[in-house]
């Protein structure tokens, strides 16, 4: 019984709290710019409104155009449910769950890009091309980070891997994972979610033709993915295995909020990179994770 309750709590956290993080980021950006900005709950209002709206479909779109976002959403949610959640711990732990997490995210990417290409629009093709191409580099960075964590903890289970802190290499790992977070969630400097120039976007341009409930699912999925990466980053760096109960919860919430503020500050201070510089930045993220891996491997040099 308690397992079911625990699962429901976990589900509620991911489903209900995810849209908070983009609101927080927007608030930070507004604060830096000296504006009041949209309310923190803005995304909830947007989602509620979209869910009630009708759907406009391209004449070219197949049923996959609606199925794609649904599958991608479930895949992200599934990946999120695999993560340990601070004091709640992990719901289902088994060897290799971390690989399932990484590949569920890849499945989400497959579905998103597939749906993007349904409409035959050149802009969406462009976004999808960028998404799958940059994913090659982020995938390398993510696998390297996972390997670093696994080598340090000597385990392939998320619960154990994220329990202790990343040790000496944690700064490197944090920097690498933060860059990956920015790239995977299409934030500045990789992509500008606020721009109105479709030519320069990645994620937003892929969902141009979505509307109504499918768009709501896409937006909610994106928010969950952002939260997932934030939680992953915080838990990779901080030793959650040593904290329990309230302390862990506070640390997790504080850490995620800190990541959100960081994203907001990066977005306020940096401009979007030129596309030809993006691979360079992603390679840097990969190298950061690689050096974190080396530190984890040799147990530090000191």
């Amino acid at each position: 019984m308690s397992a079911i309750v625990e699962f429901l709590v976990r589900l509620a956290v991911w489903l209900l709290l995810a849209p908070l993080l983009p609101g927080l980021i927007n608030k930070v950006k507004a604060w830096v710019a000296g504006r009041r900005g949209p309310p923190v709950l803005q995304l909830y209002y947007d989602l509620a409104r979209l869910w009630r709206k009708g759907v406009v479909l391209s004449t070219l779109a197949s049923p996959g155009f609606v199925v794609g976002p649904a599958v991608a959403w479930v895949a992200v949610l599934g990946a999120a449910l695999l993560l340990p959640l601070g004091p709640l711990g992990i719901s289902l732990s088994f060897r290799g769950d971390v690989i399932l997490l990484v590949y569920l995210l890849a499945l989400a990417r497959f579905c998103t890009t597939w749906a993007a290409l349904e409409t035959g629009s050149a802009f969406e093709g462009m976004g999808a091309a960028r998404e799958v191409s940059y994913a090659v580099l982020t995938e390398a960075a993510v696998i390297t980070a996972v390997l670093a964590l696994s080598l340090r903890s000597g385990s392939v289970e998320l619960g154990t891997m994220l329990a202790s802190s990343a040790g000496t290499g944690s700064v490197l790992l944090a920097a690498g994972l933060f860059t990956v977070l920015l790239a995977e969630n299409c934030r500045v400097p990789f992509d500008d979610p606020n721009t109105h120039l479709e030519l320069t976007m990645i994620h937003e341009v892929m969902v141009l033709d979505h509307s109504g409930p499918p768009l709501a699912v896409v937006l909610h999925g994106a928010a969950m993915k952002l939260l997932l990466f934030a939680v992953l980053l915080v838990e990779a760096v901080l030793p959650f295995g040593e904290w329990s109960g309230l302390g862990g919860a506070v640390a997790l919430i504080g850490g995620v909020a800190l990541v959100g503020v960081g994203v907001g500050l990066v977005e306020s201070w940096l401009a979007r990179y030129a596309f030809k510089r993006v691979p360079l930045l992603l390679t840097t993220a990969f190298l950061l994770c690689l050096f974190a891996l080396l530190v984890a491997w040799k147990g530090g040099w000191s």
């Binding site: 009708g54 391209s58 141009l208």
Partner: peptide, 9 residues
């Protein structure tokens, strides 16, 4: 909610 078919935007 009703599906409307339109040209790709």
């Amino acid at each position: 909610k009703g599906i409307r078919r339109e040209l790709t935007w």
